[in-house]
Amino acid sequence: MNATIANDLFRQSIRDYHRTDNVDTPIDNLYPADAIESLLYQKNWIDTVQWHLEDIIRSPTIRPDELVGVKRRIDQSNQDRTDMVEQIDGWFFDQFRTISPKSGARLNSETPAWLLDRMSILQLKLYHFREQTERPDAPDEHRLKAQFKLNVLLEQEQDLAQCFDELMGDIRNGDRYMKVYRQMKMYNDPTLNPVLYGQPAQRQP
């Protein structure tokens, strides 16, 4: 796995989503379920759907009942995103299990999957800023500003790709090592969120 393969998978997922551009479109992941390609495709699909849910929830005409429903979908999507990152890190941990870190090897603060998370979101930014540079209904000033930001994002794409490939190489060589941390999110857990565990029992009809 390298940055080029990962970014290609992210771009494929984004293109596939925009064939319908609908947050209710079911994912069509053709990769084997246990393959890293499948995990990365699914990860970006979650990110892409959430990106558009975040657009929808900011509509000035959204009804209150719709807003609540979309907010709950975003909450669930955040949990799914975190779960996928942990699953991807688990895959990498298994790949590197037989590698013995060298004496003095450094622990990297960011795991491979959380770096891939940033790369996935960045591909979404690139896609949508590129759209803004090509908008026929937008004034030239808008397109120029979008192009400036797109250029910065393209530089960041190269930097993150380099960082990912260097991290992979360092772990393989034993110069750095990784740990898998669980995120310990609280807001979706009815035993940890005080608003949820503090609710009175529902009356039975």
Rank of each mutant, 00 (worst) to 15 (best):
Y41M: 01
W51D: 11
S77D: 08
D16W: 04
P26N: 06
A33Y: 08
R72H: 10
W51G: 07
D89E: 09
I56N: 05
L67Q: 13
M84F: 02
I27T: 12
I88S: 04
I56Y: 11
Q50I: 14
S109C: 00
G69W: 06
N78S: 00
T111F: 04
I88K: 01
D75C: 03
S100Q: 15
G69M: 10
T48K: 02
S109Y: 04
E86L: 06
D65K: 10
N29V: 10
H52D: 15
I88L: 01
L39A: 06
G69P: 00
R73M: 12
W51M: 13
K71C: 12
I88H: 01
Y41R: 03
T48R: 09
P101H: 10
R19G: 04
T82F: 00
Q76F: 09
Q12V: 03
V49D: 08
Q50V: 11
A105D: 09
P32W: 09
I62V: 08
L39N: 03
V23R: 02
W45Q: 03
T82C: 03
G69R: 15
I36G: 00
L107V: 04
F92K: 02
I88Y: 02
Y31M: 03
T111Q: 07
T98L: 05
D28P: 01
I88F: 05
P32Q: 09
D47A: 15
E86V: 10
Y41N: 03
E66N: 02
G90Y: 07
D21C: 12
K43Y: 14
T61Q: 09
Y41T: 07
W51H: 14
M84Q: 14
V49W: 05
D28F: 04
K71S: 15
R81S: 11
N78E: 06
R15L: 15
Y17A: 04
I99T: 14
N78Y: 04
I99K: 09
I56R: 07
V23Y: 05
D80W: 02
I74W: 11
E86I: 09
D24W: 06
N78Q: 03
D80I: 00
D16S: 11
S100G: 06
H18T: 07
I57T: 12
K71I: 02
Q95W: 01
